[in-house]
Amino acid sequence: MAHEKLDDLFLETLKDIYFAERKILRALPKMAKGAQSPDLKAAFEKHRDETEGHVERLQQVFEIIGKRPQGKTCEAIEGIIAEGEEILEEFKGTPALDAGLVSAAQAVEHYEIARYGTLKQWAKDLGLKDAANLLDQTLTEEAKTDEALTRLAEGGLNQRAKAA
Rank of each mutant, 00 (worst) to 15 (best):
A43H: 01
L11D: 07
D8T: 03
F62L: 03
D125H: 04
A104E: 13
E109H: 05
L9P: 09
I81P: 01
E52V: 15
G127R: 13
L126W: 04
A104K: 03
L128M: 13
R68L: 02
A32Y: 00
E86L: 09
E154N: 15
A96L: 11
E75A: 11
R48N: 12
L119A: 06
K144C: 05
K162C: 03
V55I: 15
Q137N: 14
A43Y: 08
L139K: 11
E89Y: 06
A161E: 11
E78Y: 00
A131D: 09
K92A: 15
G117W: 06
E142M: 07
E56Q: 14
W122D: 14
A2F: 13
K41V: 10
F91N: 12
A42K: 05
L135P: 12
L9F: 13
D136T: 10
L6R: 07
E45Q: 12
D39E: 15
M1H: 05
E12R: 09
G127W: 06
M31C: 10
P69H: 06
M31E: 14
I113W: 09
K15I: 00
A99R: 03
V61R: 07
E4L: 13
Q36I: 12
E63P: 06
L135W: 01
E12Y: 01
G117Q: 11
D7K: 13
Y18F: 09
K41M: 07
A143I: 06
D136Q: 15
S103G: 15
L157V: 11
E63K: 14
L135H: 03
K124W: 01
D8H: 14
E86I: 10
G66T: 07
Q137H: 12
L28C: 01
L149F: 09
E112W: 02
K33G: 10
A42I: 01
G117D: 10
Q60N: 10
A104P: 12
C74P: 01
K67R: 12
Q106R: 12
E75P: 10
G93P: 08
W122L: 08
T138A: 07
D136K: 07
R115W: 00
Q137G: 15
A107E: 09
L9M: 14
L88M: 15
R160I: 11
R115L: 04
K41W: 07
L157G: 04
K41Y: 04
L14E: 04
K23D: 05
F91W: 10
L149R: 04
K23F: 06
E89P: 08
G100Y: 00
K92M: 03
L40E: 05
L139G: 11
P38S: 13
A105R: 06
G100M: 02
D125S: 13
T73H: 02
K120P: 13
M1S: 15
Q159W: 09
D130I: 02
K46F: 05
P95G: 02
A163H: 09
Y111P: 15
K5N: 13
K144V: 09
I24K: 00
A123K: 12
Q137Y: 04
G84N: 00
T51H: 01
I81E: 01
R68F: 05
